[in-house]
Design a protein around this nucleic acid. Structure first.
Lengths: 190, 190
DNA sequence: TAAATAACTTAACAAATGTTAAATAAACTG
DNA sequence: CAGTTTATTTAACATTTGTTAAGTTATTTA
């Protein structure tokens, strides 16, 4: 059940048997059905999820419309980040695009692990660093690439995503409208 | 000399006198003239800078052109992040837009502080979290806002920047061409 | 200070993306 | 399976941004 998580974690730090054990009492497995909400608007995000299976999306309401800012790839972490970090009410909503199995840990438990096990603090920092690098990469792609190139990049980087995630969410993720994505797909130049 | 840095640090953690002292032996003050390079392409970024005064830009060569991905606000941290984190050759270049005074710490010293003082690890994590939140905010603005709105946001968020930073860099930062920024400034709708 | 370079603006036309409004296709639900 | 909802496509026209090629203004340097 936790093996994907451990595989992920071991990319960043070497955990002893005991340190690995330390997580088990805090991690909770939850299942979300498609369209179920993990973190709602106005709530203070007190949990972070590792996606064991399925896709989540991070979106927010803007002018009466839902705008998807992020789609979490498989086996990655997701939370309403600014709410989680600053403990302020979330303007972001996180919900399940497909049925999901999540490994969830509460912020207070994470803080406990941070203070009790230095390697956990290190892990937290390394994961955030990694997410930050990816986020910067995405900014690059908004600055230099066309929507078509960004779309091809998704196909390459997350080939499974296209099967399970509706195009309207992918369009948002790319920063264009659904209709523009549809047109772009038709005229795509391989 | 270090007071801006301490002010910045104390937003995130409470350092004791002794912990504050721990930084002083590792922080080096350097001055860059306008256009001088702090981290070059191909180099492995082994330092991170706090901008005590002046503006840096992070850019890279793309198709023979320089593309500015980031302009560091005053009193913030800058490095070629993915190179610094992964210790791989940097494709990014960091250079001084204006004369700069930087407080610089080497990665090895930072790692030492991380391992020796848990609060430093915490500080590192908190600062990265903060940078990550800002980076996500920027992705939002690429997805939902027009270039005009993004430009107005810079004016509001960093009112001094406009005096010291050439528009060509700001245009890159906004993800548009210089000429488009110029047109947008003319037609701006307040 | 004159010449040179860099920064910024303008304009005409091209390309990309948005908007509105529909039609079709696919997936759910009773 | 029929009806309904959701997903996707298409098309015409509008708006935004890019491209190219100038020009003007400001700043730097000999």
């Amino acid at each position: 059940m936790l093996s994907n998580l451990f595989k992920f974690i071991n990319q960043f730090v070497d955990f002893s048997e005991k340190e690995i054990k330390s997580v088990q009492e805090f991690v909770q497995v939850i299942h979300l059905n498609k369209n179920e909400i993990f973190i709602n608007e106005g709530e203070i995000a007190d949990q972070i999820a590792f996606t064991n299976s399925g896709y989540l999306r991070v979106y927010y309401n803007y002018d009466g419309e839902e705008i998807t800012r992020d789609i979490t790839p498989l086996h990655s972490f997701a939370t309403a980040l600014s709410s989680f970090v600053l403990q302020t009410p979330s303007f972001e909503i996180i919900s399940a695009i497909t049925d999901c199995e999540l490994l969830v840990i509460k912020k207070e438990h994470l803080e406990y692990l941070y203070s009790e096990y230095p390697k956990w603090e290190r892990l937290g920092r390394r994961i955030i660093e990694e997410m930050f690098v990816e986020s910067q990469r995405r900014i690059y792609s908004f600055i230099t690439e066309t929507a078509e190139t960004r779309y091809k990049r998704i196909l390459k980087q997350y080939p499974d995503m296209i099967h399970d995630v509706p195009l309207k969410y992918i369009a948002d993720f790319l920063g264009i409208k659904l209709q523009s994505l549809s047109r772009l797909r038709k005229n795509i130049n391989w």
